[in-house]
Design a protein around this nucleic acid. Sequence first.
DNA 1: GGCATAGTTGAATCTATATTCAACTATAAA
DNA 2: TTTATAGTTGAATATAGATTCAACTATGCC
Lengths: 244, 244
Amino acid sequence: MPRSHRRKRTPVQSDQLGSRGLATRERLKAAAGRVLARKAYSQMTVADVTREAGVAAGLFHRYFPDLQTLTMELANEVLDELGNTATVEQGVARGDWMGRIHSHIALSVANYAQRPGLVRAMNQLADESPIFRARLRGFYQSQLELLAAQLPRLFPASQLTSTEALLIVYALGGISEAVLRERYILRNPALRDLQLSPEELADWLATLFYRALFAANPPPEQERKGARLLAVRSPERPRRRDAG
Amino acid sequence: MPRSHRRKRTPVQSDQLGSRGLATRERLKAAAGRVLARKAYSQMTVADVTREAGVAAGLFHRYFPDLQTLTMELANEVLDELGNTATVEQGVARGDWMGRIHSHIALSVANYAQRPGLVRAMNQLADESPIFRARLRGFYQSQLELLAAQLPRLFPASQLTSTEALLIVYALGGISEAVLRERYILRNPALRDLQLSPEELADWLATLFYRALFAANPPPEQERKGARLLAVRSPERPRRRDAG
DNA sequence: GGCATAGTTGAATCTATATTCAACTATAAA
DNA sequence: TTTATAGTTGAATATAGATTCAACTATGCC
């Protein structure tokens, strides 16, 4: 196959590169990032990357053994950055659930808005590489587990097991993932003319998240911009068996 | 590239095949379905399929021009089947929202549980083929719009635009999609030992869906098996600004 | 300026896989 | 049984794209 499995000449190690070489290496990564903004990971070729970077085809293998390595490096940089922002909840009171939810979702919105191509590539890479799949899941699930761990305490009457709590937080996480994917990655035209700023979008998503979690609207003082959504609420008891 | 773009000999049309040929064609499709259960669409080869079907390599092109055509045919069969089941809500009262939600989610759970490989392949195919991407979105969104169209009527005070309504239903749809993907497609070990039957899983997901939509628990008579989840609910007003 | 080293080029080569097709085999109608 | 037709085989060929590498160029140190 084009992306060979055979043992091959290994690229020079990064720590043995001069500043010029290091710069070229970065140019290749940046070029790959731009390529991924317009085509799927599995359709990107080495030639795409070198052409985008404006270097000769053969140069690629001086710096990377293959596209997967380069892409994974790019992906790990994103994950590291998101991980550093583990200070997400800074300035938000522990008991302020709406605030905490909102801060996480806002970070996620920004991530999709700023690098939709990379986010898409990360998912495609996870489809093909078990190693990266594990890495990505580890990252995502560790975030989710911060919340999952609170659920038994928050809702003692529910007798949730930790697996059940995890199920719930995956479901809640899906609320924003689905919308962000549809809007920023798939660029659904029907969602394009949304007049929402990233900030407002985060408000809406956080509100829905809060509602699914607590079966209630967030407290009014937390309303933020998604206020109109609060008027969306249980209107009546379900109707009779007849058509309604 | 291996999957060539060059014009090539076209396969014999299905309607010119005898019953033996038709049967072989189906064997190839079934074989591809099995291959997709174990590897990603973009990594499947023609040889994988013919080997799995137990026929000579060259036979593939008598029936299909390429893997994409075959896979799309497989995918369309799934979509057609799901579309036929547009009788999903049969026997459920129009005003019984929990019942309606549950019936749709139960169908989705069954779909993921029965053919996780194909569902995954459909998403991967959508990543690579704009045509299929449009087809898949059209299918999914038309389902969502059935609900979106009700929102302005259900919640007149909210003044939702149709785009906003669509945003909300995409978000709600993400609740089950995220969990089903994680459980059936990515086979997250942490979710593997869930003791829930598909029926119970649908209950949980429908309950979360209902809560996000109505900011309230579903009416008790609708409780079904996910009852324990009802104890998960707004416990207190958010605490003070201090750590809580 | 001379020299050593790091970096770059692009044509040549290799490989996995798609694709073709002439020869072969099964089927069934007459 | 013959014969026409549909179906099948697998070796041969074609191709996209990865990978190598000998020759070339830039950089910086003395």
